[in-house]
């Protein structure tokens, strides 16, 4: 069943046209790889889905409901989460403050709303434990953590509110080999829970190992929509670079 449906989305920044009528869809429990060269429009497309950018034309629906009129905050509440490449953490705030940023649980005291810090800490700890992440302490500023630990906080933030769709932008780019496996296992777990996942990555081996489908963006167009089980590295690379330079690039990718 279709979860997210992107239809003919276009976007230009001033005179620079970035997306030309891109189509893409994600089903429940489906992992879709979004790949393409630098500047192909992957991040722009995803920022339109989360509401950070507005689309010039086109339509995006979540569960059949049009979402382009909703603010980023509303889209999060509807179940769209994105884990950014730079993680987008508030580094001086602690783990629970980051996980609940913008969605702090509240309790009423004398008719006024106050942030419920005890609940925040408890649920943040529970989510960190569920992910099996090891953090020095839940009440420390996240800026004092290692890259992998900060990644865990960003992931925990995306998963705490039962998302329907999780978008990951280069989640493995800055990680050690062992940590990469952890992220790939997590993606498989999300899939088994019926959550849709969009994975943006330059590591094509990761994309081929974990996705169901691969959408290739090339100069702002969806150049290919490949079923992972029926494709291979060469086909993906050729779609990314365009056929002309294919042999050279495929040889390089096979080496690396």
């Amino acid at each position: 069943m279709t979860l997210l449906n992107i239809t003919k989305v276009s976007k230009a920044f001033g005179p620079v046209s970035v997306l030309h009528g891109v189509d893409m869809s994600v089903d429940r429990g489906e992992v879709v790889g979004l790949v393409g060269d630098n500047g192909a429009g992957k991040s722009t497309l995803m920022k339109i889905v989360t509401g950070m950018y507005t689309a010039d034309a086109g339509e995006i629906t979540l569960d059949g409901q049009d979402i382009l009129g909703n603010t980023p905050g509303e889209r999060r509440r509807m179940g769209i989460e994105m884990i950014y490449q730079d993680l987008a953490l508030a580094r001086q705030q602690d783990v629970s403050a980051n996980i609940f940023l913008g969605r702090e649980p509240e309790k009423k005291v004398l008719g006024m709303n106050f942030v419920d810090k005890a609940t925040m800490r408890r649920e943040a700890q529970a989510m960190i434990d569920r992910l099996g992440a090891r953090l020095p302490a839940i009440n420390r500023p996240v800026g004092s953590f290692s890259g992998g630990q900060q990644q865990s906080v960003a992931i925990a933030r995306a998963l705490t509110f039962d998302p329907k769709l999780v978008i990951m932008d280069e989640p493995t780019a800055a990680l050690a080999v062992r940590e990469v496996q952890g992220v790939l296992d997590l993606i498989r777990q999300l899939k088994s829970e019926g959550i849709g996942v969009i994975l943006i990555s330059h590591r094509l081996n990761d994309v081929l190992s974990v996705t169901d489908r691969i959408v290739v963006l090339n100069h702002g167009r969806a150049a290919a929509n490949l079923t992972t089980a029926e494709t291979n590295m060469t086909e993906v690379v050729s779609a990314i670079v365009g056929s002309a330079e294919m042999d050279h690039a495929a040889a390089h990718e096979a080496r690396g």
Binding site: M52, G73, M82, L89
Partner: peptide
Amino acid sequence: NAARTAGIN
């Protein structure tokens, strides 16, 4: 940036 992506106006 973190605040904006968290949906804060």
